[in-house]
């Protein structure tokens, strides 16, 4: 009997959505379990790092890694998995380009930490506890001091391919079950495109599969931009033509236009098409090109309508972009402290 392909699955800075998308395969999961052996999957099964270390190098057929790289721990784990795996797949937007948590790269790590642990209105942290490399804790009950060592956060969040070589990408926030299924089929059949390709999705933009494409006028020029909460879009009519900033034209298709079918504009979670240099730059170029004004004050009036352009244009892509944010320009002071409390 030929051995079943071994599959690994690891999560880094993940929200859990990608794992959910795996579960969303529903009855098709049974086929997957029949076809492969899962050798590592901390989200669902009890594996330890040492289980992976024990495996011979290159013995895992394919490892899916989701979530962005934010901690030293992630770096350590993905490097290990790279060594053990024939194929590594960046699964989901965070792993491919940084995803929504990647927007934290607009800030220094210290700004992120102090916001998260000291400033947000919902925080209750009178002792100013913050995860640091070394934390000394006095345990009063036993009158003992212990030293906790936590993995450090990196100065910026990184997409997987900035840390290890990635063979293929599966896009989406999260990837849809169909896209995942397409990719799995390709993997199991061994029908793989050149290294570095995107699996399971189209190389055409979302408009190609958008049910509203036919309602789109050939020519669109906008005098105004609307945000989804401002209007109830007319159903069955191209959202861009209604002034909603839909990123469908600049985003890879393959999701089945799920958001559009729910009357929401595309936010770009399937990322750019092949050969695009920078998703946000391209998105900017496309949308600005069709703003129908000819001088700066008028243009600015329209641009003012969107309070957070980076968040719109780079929602899933910032860490993979050509410039990124200001994260990584300064060293963290906060987490290099040695904190004592208790």
């Amino acid at each position: 009997m030929s051995e079943k392909p071994k599959v690994g699955w690891y999560w880094c800075a993940s929200c859990g959505g990608c794992e959910e998308s795996f579960v969303d395969l529903a009855e098709r999961l049974l086929t997957v379990f029949d076809a492969v052996d899962i050798v590592f999957c901390p989200v669902a099964m009890d594996f330890k790092k040492e289980d992976v270390e024990k495996l011979p190098d290159g013995s895992i057929t394919v490892t899916f890694i989701n979530g962005g790289i934010r901690l030293e721990e992630h770096v350590e784990m993905v490097k290990l998995l790279r060594r053990k795996s024939k194929i590594v797949i960046a699964y989901g937007a965070c792993s491919a380009w940084g995803g929504i948590p990647g927007l934290a790269n607009l800030y220094d790590l210290d700004e992120v930490l102090s916001r998260k642990y000291f400033e947000v209105p919902s925080i209750d942290n009178p002792d100013k506890v913050v995860p640091c490399k070394i934390t000394k804790v006095k345990l009063k009950e036993v009158d003992e001091e212990i030293e906790l060592e936590l993995p450090k956060a990196l100065p910026a969040l990184l997409p997987l391919d900035k840390v290890i070589e990635v063979d293929y990408y599966i896009p989406g926030c999260p990837p849809t079950p169909d896209v995942f299924w397409n990719a799995l089929e390709a993997l199991l059949k061994g029908e793989l495109p050149p290294k570095g390709s995107v699996l399971g999705a189209l190389n055409k933009s979302l408009c190609d599969e958008c049910p509203l494409n036919e309602t789109k006028p050939d020519k669109i020029l906008l005098k105004d931009l609307k945000r989804p909460h401002e209007v109830i879009p007319e159903e069955g009519k191209c959202l861009l033509a209604q002034g909603l900033l839909c990123l469908g034209p600049v985003t890879r298709g393959g999701c089945g236009a799920l958001c559009i079918k729910a009357n929401m504009p595309c936010t770009g979670c399937f990322g750019p098409l092949d050969n695009i240099i920078d998703y946000g730059g391209k998105a900017l170029s496309y949308i600005a090109s069709i703003i129908d004004f000819e001088d700066e004050p008028d243009l600015n009036k329209v641009y003012d309508k969107i309070p957070d352009w980076v968040g719109i244009l780079y929602r899933y892509y910032l860490p993979a972009s050509k410039i990124g944010g200001k994260a990584g320009l300064k060293k963290s002071k906060i987490q290099d402290r040695v904190v004592e409390y208790g």
């Binding site: 190389n203 055409k204 190609d208 789109k216 020519k219 092949d274 496309y286 090109s289």
Partner: peptide, 20 residues
């Protein structure tokens, strides 16, 4: 192979040289 007929090019062409 790539074009999805989104029409952005049609909207910006100053010569009406592009159509869907």
């Amino acid at each position: 192979e790539i074009c999805s007929g989104c029409g952005v090019c049609v909207s910006v062409c100053p010569y009406e040289a592009i159509s869907i």
